[in-house]
């Protein structure tokens, strides 16, 4: 069962390059591409992709707005992986806040990029965990909404959230807490449900914004 990808970038050269690189992977299929945020919305409705690779700065609706719109339509799919030229903190954090599941640098090694796409699709760990955690930790506290925003978690769930926010994958959490992966998965789902987070990236943002985690 291969992953369906939608490429969104205003530069046709970036798109055509990405298409060739990604299509050479047996488990990835590029089902469409778009040059603007608005085109991306149409293409997503038409092609029903699993993952959208989204550029940030584009004419006619940027990647942040397009991500927010996609999430508003359906919080479960597609997932958005933001592709960026530079580690511009502010843009990246805003796109995560808008609902992107992670980000990758356009200059990253093709294998890393492919990995990031698979991780986003699976949702069992963060993409670039260290970078993502640092980004959220450094941006979220300034916009804190107060601890009241975080609903009651059981002790186990709180422990799991702390490890998720620490960038650990389900497998790593299972090892750390001496639980089965299935149990961890159940706890993570419970946490996401209580936080109203669509994926673990959003859960990490909620954890920092609520003051549950501190930078």
């Amino acid at each position: 069962m291969s992953l369906r990808l939608l490429l969104v970038d205003d530069d046709v050269l970036v798109r055509s390059g990405l298409r060739v690189i990604l299509e050479s992977e047996p488990d990835l299929t590029v089902v469409g591409d778009a040059g603007t945020g608005r085109e991306a919305l149409d293409a997503a409705a038409r092609t029903d992709p699993d993952v959208v690779l989204m550029d940030v700065r584009m004419p006619d609706m940027d990647g942040i707005a397009a991500t927010a719109e996609l999430v508003a339509r359906d919080p479960r799919r597609p997932r958005v992986l933001v592709l960026t030229t530079f580690e511009d903190d502010d843009y990246l954090f805003r796109s995560l806040q808008a609902g992107a599941s992670g980000f990758a640098l356009k200059r990253s090694d093709p294998d890393e990029l492919v990995d990031a796409i698979r991780v986003v699709a699976r949702g069992t760990s963060l993409v670039l965990p260290d970078l993502t955690r640092r980004l959220i930790a450094s941006h979220a506290p300034s916009r804190a909404r107060g601890a009241a925003a975080l609903p009651e978690l059981t002790g186990r769930e709180a422990d799991v959230l702390r490890l998720v926010a620490g960038g650990l994958s389900n497998a790593e959490i299972a090892g750390r807490m001496h639980l089965s992966r299935e149990t961890v998965k159940t706890h993570v789902s419970g946490v996401l449900l209580k936080l109203g987070a669509r994926d673990r990236t959003q859960a990490v943002i909620a954890a920092y914004e609520s003051g549950f985690m501190t930078a």
Binding site: D11, L13, V14, S16, G17, L18, V20, I21, P110
Partner: peptide, 17 residues
């Protein structure tokens, strides 16, 4: 930055092809 990114992706893709 933009030109280098596009070139990099094109080069990576070309090598694969």
């Amino acid at each position: 930055g933009h030109a280098l990114t596009a070139s990099l992706l094109q080069a990576t893709a070309a090598r694969r092809t």
